[in-house]
């Protein structure tokens, strides 16, 4: 830990954490540039920069600004939102399995979205449906696991149960839907960044702008609460309001992110874990988790587009493959 002092002000920074964050920013920029530049039609990097400032060729401007940039930006923002949401819930439950992918919140958002698809909703209504589904599911899981306060392990078990229930509901809805809706919903269910425009990026950007300050405020109390409620209360933390604020922020981030891309699994689980191991921070690391989520998602999307080109995989398949591998690795390592 390094301390920066100015008069009576002081800031505490971990040099390693700072370095990791800077590296992640660099990685994010690099991957984004590759994603903007490559594809069926290669746009050289100087042209990308030019088109960002409105001085590129019309073709480059169309491809970069209209087609590729919204997809990359949506990926970065959604990844960051999932990373933050995962960091919050893993911290609250003190368990890597406490991420929104496992405790049913993502599943709730997915079901909400599918209901909207089957009812023939527009893309805005699908987004609204999934946000609503996420909040409703969070309330349901919370209510079902409430018994003299919420215990982390019960929340996780109830969440897994509700997830399974919702997944079967998803497939039931798919069989009842007409073939076109079913195809749309099926594609949406795997989580995809295909065809995302600025209208998808904007809501996530607004949500992040509003909720990031709250994340920053609760991150230190959350870190203290990882030692147990009593220890946190003993040093003067008002545990219940902090937890309520953190849960609200986490559910909203997860819901907004899922609304934009569909349920992209494993980013919320893997990003905070990777961030924690890289920064070696004892406790939740909001900024690094958000950056890691962003980098993970755009990298996975790039791989999904290029790996089996010209076949385009939905990014959700890629993250599930990477995330699953990582989960198994983590469990193996922990048993030792």
């Amino acid at each position: 830990m390094t301390v920066l002092r100015l008069a009576s002000w002081s800031l505490r920074l971990s040099p390693r954490g700072l370095a990791v964050c800077l590296l992640l920013v660099a990685a994010g920029v690099a991957v984004s540039l590759v994603a903007l530049s490559t594809g069926e039609f290669t746009v050289p990097v100087p042209d990308i920069v030019g088109s960002l400032f409105g001085r590129g060729t019309p073709a480059a401007e169309l491809i970069v600004w209209k087609l590729r940039a919204p997809r990359v930006v949506t990926g970065l923002l959604v990844g960051a939102a999932f990373g933050l949401s995962g960091a919050i819930f893993q911290s609250i439950t003190r368990n890597p399995l406490g991420s929104p992918d496992f405790i049913g919140f993502t599943a709730g958002a997915a079901t909400g979205g599918i209901v909207a698809v089957v009812l023939g909703g527009s893309s805005w209504q699908i987004a609204g449906g999934s946000l609503l589904g996420c909040v409703a599911c969070a309330l349901l899981v919370y209510a079902l696991s409430f018994r003299n306060g919420v215990q982390a392990h019960r929340l996780i078990l109830v969440g897994i149960g509700v997830s399974a229930l919702l997944t079967s509901a998803d497939w039931y809805l798919l069989t009842r839907a007409n073939i076109n809706d079913a195809a749309t919903a099926g594609a949406w269910l795997t989580g995809s960044l295909g065809g995302r425009g600025w209208e998808h990026a904007l809501p996530v950007a607004c949500a992040l702008a509003l909720l990031l300050p709250v994340c920053a405020l609760v991150s230190r109390p959350l870190r203290m609460m990882e030692m147990g409620d009593d220890s946190a209360k003993a040093v003067g933390i008002r545990v219940e309001p902090v937890r309520a604020a953190a849960v609200t922020v986490g559910v909203l981030l997860c819901g907004v992110a899922t609304a934009a891309t569909g349920p992209v699994v494993f980013v919320a689980m893997a990003a905070p874990q990777l961030a924690r191991r890289l920064t070696r921070s004892p406790g939740v690391t909001m900024l690094a988790s958000a950056l890691m989520g962003a980098v993970l998602l755009v990298t996975a999307d790039l791989a999904a587009q290029r790996l089996l080109a010209p076949v385009q995989l939905p990014v959700g398949i890629m993250t599930a493959a990477i995330g699953g591998t990582y989960l198994v690795y983590m469990l193996r390592k922990e048993r030792r």
């Binding site: 990882e226 147990g228 220890s231 040093v235 070696r280 004892p282």
Partner: peptide, 30 residues
């Protein structure tokens, strides 16, 4: 408290430092 959870990988100095929380503010962290 009777039981507390040790955060993964925390050092002794860091853990002891957490006791200073009530004396700290957002702009006076250490």
């Amino acid at each position: 408290p009777q039981s507390s959870i040790v955060p993964d990988g925390i050092t002794v100095a860091d853990l002891v430092g957490r006791g200073r929380y009530p004396h700290q503010r957002l702009m006076r962290q250490w």
